[in-house]
Amino acid sequence: MGMTPALDLDEVGVAYGAAPALENIDGTVAPGEAVALIGPNGAGKSTLIKAILGLVPLASGRITVLGSAPAGARRHVAYVPQADTLDPEFPISVGQVVLMGRYRRIGWLRRPGAADRQAARQALEQVGLADRARHRFGTLSGGQRQRVLLARAIAAEPRLLLLDEPFNGVDAVSEQALLAAIAALKEGGAAVVVSTHDLALAHLACEEVCLLNRRQYGFGPTQTTLTPERLRATYGGHALELRGDRVIVAHS
């Protein structure tokens, strides 16, 4: 160790008004590693991601991103929203969406340079959609749109990547493409935080898991932390099944 962690959560608490949304979240993510945020709907996964982005104030504790406060690290952090929250009628091409990942580098008035265009093209290749650059974003399938948004994040060359439920409603081909692109980013030294319902994917893509439901029910290596007991505690009354090495959470 001895390396500066990409993300350090130190007894983090967030409150909306008087109601606590998150309490005592504590753990670190090293460069090149991924952590899965796992918990039921309303557990505070999105809130934690927003806190890491510096978009919601902390009620307690501290978040350190790449050695500085979240707001100071934005240049090196990329965020991937859920594709289905975006307007499919928006008149913008796939290539332009990916180029958005370069906006902060390009600035306000300069035209995108050769380096920007190349970064965008390579990012689109990484998610397997290089041939779709000229298509309108909204004409792609949900899974493909999710891949385009990941390409936009890759084009920003982040050192910390945050993904909000990227596998929701995504087809198998897109799921594989997303996993491969995330693995490539990790190999390049980026740290990844991904919120998900899919425990199997957490096993596949993430070295660490953070189990949360308002408070933390475990933060550590996936193999030892993702236990049936801990999951049952995290999900409360919701039914839970184990099938082979696959864990299935059934929502009531």
Binding site: L53, A71, R74, Y79, M100, Y103, I106, W108, L109, R152
Partner: peptide
């Protein structure tokens, strides 16, 4: 002209634009 990129980013993806600063 000056704000075309921030305005487009905000219109397309408010959360992403906010995350980008």
């Amino acid at each position: 002209v000056i704000l075309r990129r921030p305005l487009t980013a905000r219109a397309f993806d408010p959360q992403g634009a906010q995350a980008a600063g």
